[in-house]
Design a protein around this nucleic acid. Structure first.
Lengths: 343, 343
DNA sequence: CTGAAAGCGCTTACAG
DNA sequence: CTGAAAGCGCTTACAG
């Protein structure tokens, strides 16, 4: 009876419950205007038969696929785990499913790959993570196909295109204030790559917190970086072997902070006794190194949940949301571990 | 024309090409018995109209969903990135799509969650990663629904159920041989948790390589662990503060190896000058710590590709494959970095 | 080598 | 509050 291909259909349920298939459909889709006793009777049969409507049939007839797409390009795979955790959970609660596609941001046939997915599957919405959410080609392909999108942490918001993000400026301010409260004044900063807006935002937060505490950032202690381990290590090497080394280093992301740790180690500097280090992102590695990194956790899973909700609700919305509701900012979390200490 | 809902159907293609929809269907599905010129004509129109058959219609009519499911429970998210990279790529090449679901291995409603996915989506196959691929409840639910599965790195192979894995014993032998060739003889080993078969396999490889080189493992240098950072750190603390400390430590996975690094650091031991350390897995972190870890890379993406292939080909197979073909073993890769040195 | 018909399992509009 | 009919866009048998 549970063999492949012989599962019950809506007709079976209708017959068993003594109603029409339309009424079964109404109950399953939570449509109003069904007598309570009828609803209960139908639900009972649905349960007994373990009936589940088939996505392909619903999709073909109703024009909704109950599929949410997730497009990503994440070689380091730091982001994608949490994104999916949040997205699949929320999808499940809402009766949707998540289809993922790993793309190369600079693939020559990117357009066709997206078309293939969109035209074949007709997902009801698409979640885009960096750097794909900032790729004009990707955005154009999706817009032309009429697929609703939500951008996760895009470089900058686009008018009319929903997005969800955290507040990098504010988080950087908090991290900086933490160091200042620990007594640090000579705080070095290692920047991210200039083509990513998070880099500027984090730097801005650093500067503003310094000034709020009456400190002027020493430009000699501000080094460029590119979010890689190596760039963090090299910047720290430079910083720490200078004449007036900093007592704390703010690296714009965890990978660079790990580089700082490596450089300090090589120079025989004890962290956190002689040098405090903070990162940004709360990467899986951040908790595993010695000492564990003080950092900021992006609410990645929550952002993904929110993205799913926006997509599903957007479908139902009569009136398009105004631009303020379109761009959501979620709360981050300061993670204080052992790489920071009072001086 | 590319607005939502107005995309071309098979009828449009047939009309434009001057053939029946059945012929269009034949061309699209690579069925034999179509005149070459007819085929070309149809393909030309398909291209011109940017036509893509709708998954929901194909699925409803044909009984195949062109969907492959991926069930995983991976809190550390180390595995899932590579799995998806490999799986989505191969799916794309074969005209399939990947639907993922993040499950809790011990969720009370695990059965219902799986049923929901299977009955709604009817995936043509399912990929299971550890620890779900070893969960009897999961396996039973899938078997009853008649969904073909491939297990990735299961504890042990199950007769008749396809699987794909690497050779842990052999990899551990290679790692051990590497240390021995570097001149190490007092090699410590930190085991994994006894309930995971990889633990036993890696230990077995260690012992067999030692003996192959005429060395008998010193049981005082064999410590229990549970694959966590903390257990590796504690085991190393024990090992390294003993009267006759080892000159090398083989940790059964990278997380524990990172723990060893932390312990060594704390004790003021220089790695690799005074102590060589090897891990297992080539986790993202392994390359980012100082010194970068010598380890073994599991061919995760390749295993995922293979799993997709087995699922898709299984569908086509006339005769069920014999048990040898059902259980594939893929080649691993030794990654030699800076945490190992000749003594 | 090609096509006309039936049907997959639902939802949509339309009635009552 | 409930139902009979049509149709979504394909593939499967079945013919010729």
């Amino acid at each position: 009876m549970s063999a492949r291909g012989s599962s019950p259909t809506i007709v079976d349920v209708a017959r068993e419950a003594g109603v029409s298939i339309k009424t079964v459909s109404r109950v399953l889709n939570h449509e109003p205007g069904v007598h309570e006793s009828t609803r209960e009777q139908v639900l009972k049969v649905v349960e007994a038969l373990r009936y589940r409507p088939k996505q392909s049939a619903r999709s073909l007839a109703g024009g909704r696929s109950f599929l949410i797409g997730l497009l990503y390009y994440d070689p380091s795979a730091i982001f994608v785990g949490s994104v999916q955790q949040g997205a699949t959970l929320r999808c499940r609660e809402l009766g949707y499913h998540l289809v993922v596609e790993s793309l190369h941001n600079d693939a020559p046939d990117l357009r066709q790959q997206i078309d293939r997915m969109v035209l074949a599957l007709r997902p009801d919405g698409m979640i885009l993570t960096p750097p794909l959410c900032d790729n004009p080609e990707v955005l154009a392909a999706l817009r032309e196909s009429g697929t609703p999108c939500v951008l996760m942490s895009p470089e900058r918001d686009i008018r009319g295109v929903p997005s969800v993000r955290m507040d990098d400026v504010h988080a950087a301010e908090e991290l900086t204030s933490l160091l200042i409260k620990l007594g640090h004044e000579r705080i070095a900063f290692i920047k991210g790559p200039p083509d990513q807006s998070a880099s500027a935002a984090r730097y801005q937060g650093f500067v503003s917190a310094m000034r709020a505490h009456g400190l002027e950032p020493d430009l000699e202690l501000v080094q460029p970086g590119d979010f890689s381990f190596a760039s963090g290590r090299d910047a720290a090497q430079q910083l720490l072997s200078g004449p007036k080394p900093p007592t704390a280093v703010f690296a714009s992301n965890d990978d660079m902070a790990l580089g700082v740790l490596a450089a300090a180690h090589r120079l025989g500097l004890n962290v956190p006794a002689e040098l405090s280090v903070v990162g940004f992102d709360d990467s899986p590695t951040a908790a595993l190194v010695w000492p564990p990194l003080t950092t900021v956790r992006q609410p990645v899973a929550e952002m993904a949940r929110t993205a799913v909700e926006m997509l599903v609700q957007g479908h139902r919305a009569e009136v398009p949301a105004d631009d303020a509701d379109l761009h959501k900012v979620l709360a981050h979390e300061l993670i204080v571990r052992d790489s920071t200490r009072a001086r």
